[in-house]
């Protein structure tokens, strides 16, 4: 049994049929990349898993249990975390408050803060600043730090490199690699070299469907396949 099973999921925005039967699975400990062009349904797949945009048909199972019909906070309580596109840090909360809020109730907030600041030492310096005043790269660090201390077994990571300078992207990639050591990742990423570098397997999404899948091993050096995926 896979940790996450997405089976023939159909999701709509109003009357717009966005996901037209997405099927994929993620094994425990894996990093799986969802790649594809803009607007093909990658982010909607993550939103459907989280029940932010609940599917109208199909099933999403986590650890063997269906998530369909649950509230998003109940999905989170089961161990599914989210590092969203555009970071979505709480701009009017300080960096420290953003991290504290992400520590699950009952867990040690101070230990969570220490974990976050050890992973991202820059954040310690800005602990008392409103998160909205941070740069894009710093906000991405904070977003990943929140995912880190939220004690998830599965993290859904959406476009972590979007809008960041190449040097910052390297830092983000290193951070995600560190997170992946003890967390399963489902990663949406348009930066194909980055996705292939981080992931064990990939799915290609097009027009709301999975159209290709496989292991990432050797793809980066297989020019013909790399070109096809890039297209």
């Amino acid at each position: 049994m896979s940790l996450l099973e997405v089976e023939d999921v159909h999701t709509y925005y109003g009357e717009s049929h966005v996901l037209e039967g997405v099927t994929l699975d993620v094994e425990e400990g894996e990093v799986v990349a969802l790649v594809g062009r803009n607007g093909v349904g990658k982010t909607t797949t993550l939103r459907s898993i989280l029940q932010l945009t609940p599917p109208r048909e199909g099933d999403v199972r986590y650890d063997g249990e269906s998530l369909v019909g649950l509230d998003t906070h109940e999905v989170a309580d089961r161990g599914v975390g989210w590092i969203p596109e555009d970071r979505r840090v709480f701009a009017h909360l300080t960096v420290e408050e953003n991290v504290r809020l992400s520590v699950p109730p009952g867990s040690d907030e101070e230990a969570g803060l220490e974990t976050a600041f050890e992973a991202f030492p820059d954040l310690r310096e800005f602990a008392d600043r409103d998160a909205g005043t941070l740069s894009g790269g710093q906000q991405q660090m904070l977003s990943i730090a929140r995912g880190l201390v939220n004690e998830n077994e599965l993290l859904l990571v959406d476009e972590p490199s979007e809008g960041l300078a190449p040097l910052i992207v390297e830092n983000v990639a290193e951070s995600l690699q560190a997170v992946a050591e003890d967390t399963t990742l489902l990663l949406v990423e348009q930066n194909l070299p980055l996705a292939l570098d981080l992931a064990d397997r990939f799915y290609v999404v097009d027009h709301g469907e999975v159209v290709d899948e496989g292991s990432t091993e050797g793809v980066a050096t297989d020019d013909e396949r790399f070109e096809r995926l890039s297209a």
Partner: peptide, 9 residues
Amino acid sequence: EMAAALGVD
């Protein structure tokens, strides 16, 4: 949405 994804009801 983000708060819910962090487990907030």
